[in-house]
């Protein structure tokens, strides 16, 4: 019996080595370990084994069974490993990936607007909005623009047949907001479209995008304006950006300034680029708001404020080096895909 087991052991190991695939392995398992298998047959002979060697034979039987079982398992694992390896053989990882629906994009203007809005929101400004079809009151009168100011002319501004107009700047949202707020401070930004009757060319669009800002409270000063806008432009253009304020004139702010930032251009001297207008809200604007409100919340002897406005199209052009503003409205995919 012992010698039978020994020779079965040897025979099984040889057969294991010879098994060339999983089918052969399964056949081998049945041949040795199945109900009618060779080892099963031998183990059924255990009952005839004399008691004195029963223990030794039993141990040998177990040893052979374990050896065959382990052998089969390890061969199975080897076959599986080979199959797994084969499953990726010949796969060229340098081939391009599956494109799905393709890559989309947000318009560069949306991206710039979002950058500006996110920055200003961190600085404590909330969004406000107003209509693009405006009254002369909100677009001009209340903003201290003289009745015969050239901007009001039909050659410069789009009008509707009912006398209303398409707002020439987002500054009208200043008035809309101040006319309706319940309390101070007013601390708002208003991104939006504005219209001017300009022929479309490389630097002009008849419809363009601005962002307006307004802060009104007791004791708002030029120092607040300077701190806020310097901080904002350094967030946009980088922490070391030089920002300067040039005195200027706008009807609705006094004093008024234009803001330049100093920008690097490859291979050229740094240039000052005009980027925004700003100033302290003109008392006449507060008086106009007071006229509509019929209260004293915006009494110009009690409160002050600053306002600023910047062109988002221009900002996008400067940041991205876009040379022709018309790219922003033509929506050529070769353009849009670059952002």
């Amino acid at each position: 019996m012992l010698s039978d087991l020994t020779s079965l052991h040897t025979e099984a190991l040889t057969a294991l080595d010879a098994a060339s695939d999983e089918t052969a392995l399964e056949a081998l398992r049945i041949d040795y370990l199945g109900k009618k298998g060779k080892l099963t047959a031998l183990s059924s002979g255990m009952k005839d084994v004399p008691p004195d060697i029963k223990k030794d034979v039993g141990a040998k039987l177990n040893e052979v069974r374990t050896a065959i079982t382990d052998g089969i398992t390890s061969r199975q694992l080897a076959f599986q490993a080979a199959k797994d390896a084969a499953s990726v053989s010949g796969l060229d990882i340098t081939l391009p990936g599956r494109p799905g629906q393709g890559t989309g994009s947000l318009h560069p203007l949306t991206q710039i607007r979002h950058l500006a809005i996110s920055t200003l929101r961190r600085m404590g400004f909330a969004l406000a909005e107003g209509p693009e079809i405006e009254t002369e009151w909100h677009c001009f009168d209340a903003l201290n623009t003289p009745a015969d100011h050239p901007a009001r002319n039909e050659s410069d501004t789009f009008y509707l047949n009912d006398g209303r107009l398409l707002r020439t700047h987002t500054s009208s949202v200043q008035i809309r907001t101040m006319e309706t707020v319940k309390q101070l401070p007013v601390r708002i930004i208003a991104p939006g479209a504005a219209y001017r009757r300009d022929e479309i060319d490389a630097t002009h669009l008849s419809v363009f995008n601005q962002l307006e800002g307004l802060y009104v409270d007791k004791d708002v000063s030029l120092a607040d304006l300077k701190g806020t806008l310097e901080y904002f432009f350094r967030e946009i253009f980088g922490p070391k950006t030089a920002v300067r304020f040039r005195p200027h004139f706008f009807p609705f702010t006094e004093p008024s300034f234009e803001i330049d930032v100093k920008l690097e251009a490859k291979g050229k001297e740094d240039r000052w680029i005009e980027i925004a207008g700003c100033g302290m809200v003109d008392p006449a604007v507060f008086e106009a708001v007071g006229q509509t409100r019929k209260d004293t919340l915006f009494d110009p002897t009690e409160i002050t404020g600053f306002a600023f406005g910047l062109g988002l199209d221009r900002l996008a052009m400067i940041l991205h080096g876009i040379t022709d503003i018309r790219h922003l409205i033509e929506n050529d995919l070769r353009f849009l895909r670059q952002f």
Binding site: Q101, T103, G104, H107, F158
Partner: peptide, 16 residues
């Protein structure tokens, strides 16, 4: 953002 992530390109056309 959802549309851009689904492969759409955002356009901006004139309001006139």
């Amino acid at each position: 953002s959802a549309l851009a992530n689904r492969g759409f390109h955002e356009a901006q056309t004139l309001r006139l």
